[in-house]
Design a protein around this nucleic acid. Structure first.
Lengths: 113, 113
DNA sequence: CGACTCCATAACTTAACAGTTATATAACGA
DNA sequence: TCGTTATATAACTGTTAAGTTATGGAGTCG
């Protein structure tokens, strides 16, 4: 899925995640979103474009402003992928020995003399 | 927060997601993981390193092989972030009037105090 | 030992990203 | 109309990513 690439990539940036967290509380304009960051407005505009292309936000037109709001499509795509992974994992993970193997702190394996 | 960067970034690549899907079915060596892809072995090794740094996989030592398996830490971090977002969103989005207001670009007046 | 397998690392190239400043557009307010 | 605000876009720069080939080490097996 091509859309997963964009969605996961968009979420890999802390500024963009912060923008999404802000938008979870409701609509906000570009300037309002930019305000908390030590970053130029064009930089924020580009982050917003990344989020929009990932179907994580949508914008509407209000005069000279472009209020942004969350869009759930991108999130849903991610959740579906996670569900799929979880299911596949659970299906093959019933074996207790593998569960136990997973619990060990990441092995360093010292076979080297 | 820092780990979310790495985890989301790791998942933004389709090759890496395919590797994870393969690992959901059980352990696999580097060569086994590389086999389905039209890509050199070093490329796969680097993808594996990205996944490992993101706490999405772990490797163990078995002779000359390095079998990889899924690790749930990275996934869990992502799920927690998604839960947090979902909660924040639901908290501010339950009110139907806001949903409706959000749908209609009705207001054009400024609220500037 | 010597050849072969498994894997990692280095060096390199190409492309994409994240930020900047400067500027353009469009709506608003006076 | 003119100045200001809100936003987008362009052009540029430094950084990082993803792939390649080449190579080397470590373990296995004849």
């Amino acid at each position: 899925m091509e859309s997963l690439n964009a969605a996961f990539f968009a979420l890999s940036d802390p500024t963009r995640r912060a923008i999404l967290a802000r938008l979870a509380q409701g609509e906000a304009t570009v300037m309002e979103l930019a305000e908390p960051f030590e970053m130029s407005q064009p930089a924020i505009s580009r982050h917003l474009k990344v989020l929009e292309d990932a179907a994580l936000i949508a914008r509407r037109v209000d005069g000279t402003r472009r209020p942004c709001r969350l869009r759930k499509d991108g999130m849903r795509a991610i959740e579906q992928w996670l569900d799929m992974m979880r299911a596949a994992f659970a299906r093959n993970y019933d074996r207790l020995d593998q569960v136990l193997a997973d619990m060990q702190p990441h092995t360093k394996g010292r076979q080297t003399p």
